[in-house]
Amino acid sequence: MSILVLAEHHDGALAGATAHVVAAAQQIGGDIDVLVAGEGVSAIAEAAARLDGVSKVRVADNAAYAHLLAEPTAALIAELAGDYSHVLAVASTTGKNVLPRVAALKDVAQISEIIAVESADTFKRPIYAGNAIATVQSEDALKVITVRTTGFDAVGEGGSAAIEAVDFVADNAQSTFINEELAQSDRPELGAAKVVISGGRGMGNGDNFKLLDGIADKLGPPSAPRAPRWTPVSCPTTCRWARPARSSPRTSTLPWASRVPSSTWPA
């Protein structure tokens, strides 16, 4: 078996989440190749080559893959997928955007957000927002999987995999990147945070959430864990919850739309 892992990267650096996916790939077992796609990604490829357990890094360095738009990236992975039994990616907005497209191009199912590997074709994944855990078995020849990073401990660094260029360039006349507005923050991204502090009802009201910043600073250097990961909301006790700025991989419950239920159809 051989496994292709799509490297996740932001701002010219390899995202730590990739090391968790390599760990999941190790549990499946087989040769592990990492695909680094993007524009100007040689430093990222070198970082990926240092991850333990990686046998080869394949680099698709082309303007077509800048910002990892779904259309060209999926075409690239589908092109390479013939060499592999499994294709894995982080269950991030990038992985979730690209991999289902790859799966459909290869006419196979995709398995989303696995939290454990039972065997090479059987995986555990949360359903109903984590209120149940399903064990699923794929009968497809190619398994396309996104990995929830919190289910797997990251692999270390110390490898020195070979780096090989991929020449395939996907045409894309359909989608164009316009711009990106990234939240500026001196705290890490939620998925990469070592410590997550959550405040609840005991905080009294939304303004008090800033008290948590002090604790965060005490727990790590100020440059370390910090992200406005909450949009604190104060509301009556019947609906009291703070709405995460986005769903955390560490929380099992996603916040659903704040309105009360859909119109019920009269019988």
Partner: peptide, 17 residues
């Protein structure tokens, strides 16, 4: 909680997503 159908439909129809 799959988060797949739209992306798959885009691939099958060859449309952007």
């Amino acid at each position: 909680d799959n988060n797949q159908t739209g992306q798959m439909l885009a691939a099958l129809t060859g449309l952007p997503q």
